[in-house]
């Protein structure tokens, strides 16, 4: 028995609504996550300062003796938290009275927290910053790029343009596709065994981190590069070959330039993934507390996501806003990378 037309149209409407509702639900929840992080994180960009009554600059520099301005000093995290959100924490009633007194006299203020961007990690939430993590992330990604980009693009070129079609190539392809979907934590185990225990590289260094992330990005780069190469039109190659170009000339003068936007997009997106990755770096011992930015690829290094993870485990309340603030910076960096990828795709798309 066929249901009536009215019933069928009713069903149609409800089906469409269900789709719309689930889309709204998904976007709403993701919006909640972002809004929550932003709400918690933006106070990290400001810090509480108190005017100090000791004009010690007078003593330090005799030529500036007319300089009457009092230096502002950074308030402790408890004061900072109370001043921003009214959360009393460990403050005694007397201290709260003093803060209110200072507030009346305009001796306490919120100012932009340059320290958060320019300082390295610290045990004190009000002094901790993300500079060390950013430098570490940069060095690590540099190593990742240097290792994974040539190797990944080379492998893809070989498989797509040179490899004979036989069982071995098939097996290799299957392996690479599989590797692209292997959990990232396993690459951390590989890095631990191979780079640290076998090759004896220094433990929490940008070199080991970058190589491990490079291994992780390699299959993704191979897969995306192959897609980009195979979407180059066959007629382009045939025309070039027909005009007498060698295989190599076809490859370097026509195929690669045509596929370059796709290749670059894939590489940037896989670097973005490597930038946000934490689990494999925990495996290779990058969890240590490091208070100075690294000066080379062999120095002890921390990266931004690991720093966020360490802060999030800290029991001190002041680190919650620092964690959210650092997550915001990480998300902005990822968004920039994504925008660059979209820009390249749109700009060079033919």
């Amino acid at each position: 028995m066929i249901p009536s037309l009215k019933m069928r149209h009713l069903k149609e409407r409800w089906f469409k609504r269900a789709g719309l509702i689930s889309l709204c639900f998904a976007l709403l929840f993701l919006g909640c996550v972002l809004a929550d992080i932003i709400y918690k994180g933006y106070p990290a960009f400001f810090r509480t300062e108190i005017a100090s009554n000791v004009g010690y600059s007078l003593f330090l520099n005799p030529h500036a003796s007319y300089h009457t301005e009092k230096p502002w000093v950074v308030a402790s995290d408890d004061v900072d938290l109370y001043f921003k959100s009214g959360h009393k924490g460990k403050l005694t009633p007397k201290q709260i009275q003093m803060i209110k007194e200072l507030e009346r006299q305009n001796q306490i203020r919120l100012s932009f927290n340059t320290n958060f961007f320019l300082a390295s990690d610290s045990r004190e939430p009000e002094l901790a910053g993300i500079w060390g993590g950013i430098i570490g992330s940069f060095l690590t990604l540099l190593i990742t790029f240097i290792t994974a980009f040539p190797l990944g693009v080379g492998t893809a070129l070989y498989l797509e343009e040179f490899a004979p079609r036989n069982r071995l190539t098939h097996w290799v392809e299957a392996n690479i596709n599989n590797l692209a979907a292997v959990p990232s934590i396993l690459f951390g185990l590989l890095g631990l065994v191979f780079f640290i225990h076998f090759m004896g590289l220094p433990r929490p260094s940008a070199l080991v981190g970058g190589l491990t992330l490079g291994l992780m990005s390699l299959p993704v780069i191979v897969v995306t590069t192959r897609v980009a190469l195979s979407s180059v039109q066959q007629t382009l190659k045939e025309a070039a070959l027909g005009l007498g170009a060698t295989h190599l000339q076809v490859l370097f003068h026509h195929v690669i330039p045509a596929a370059l936007p796709g290749i670059m997009t894939g590489v940037i997106l896989s670097l973005a993934r490597a930038l946000g990755e934490t689990a494999p770096l925990l495996m290779i011992g990058m969890v240590a507390f490091i208070a100075t930015p690294p000066s080379g690829i062999l120095d002890p290094t921390t990266v931004l996501p690991v720093q966020i993870f360490n802060w999030s485990r800290s029991p001190e309340l002041g680190f919650v806003e620092n964690t959210s603030g650092a997550i915001l910076i990480l998300l902005v960096m990822l968004m920039l990378l994504n925008c660059i990828a979209v820009f390249i795709r749109k700009r060079f798309e033919t």
């Binding site: 992080i37 993934r273 946000g276 964690t323 959210s324 997550i327 998300l331 990822l334």
Partner: peptide, 10 residues
């Protein structure tokens, strides 16, 4: 592409 760390923190 949002790092899972962010979801974990949330």
């Amino acid at each position: 592409g949002i790092p899972t760390l962010v979801y974990g923190f949330f």
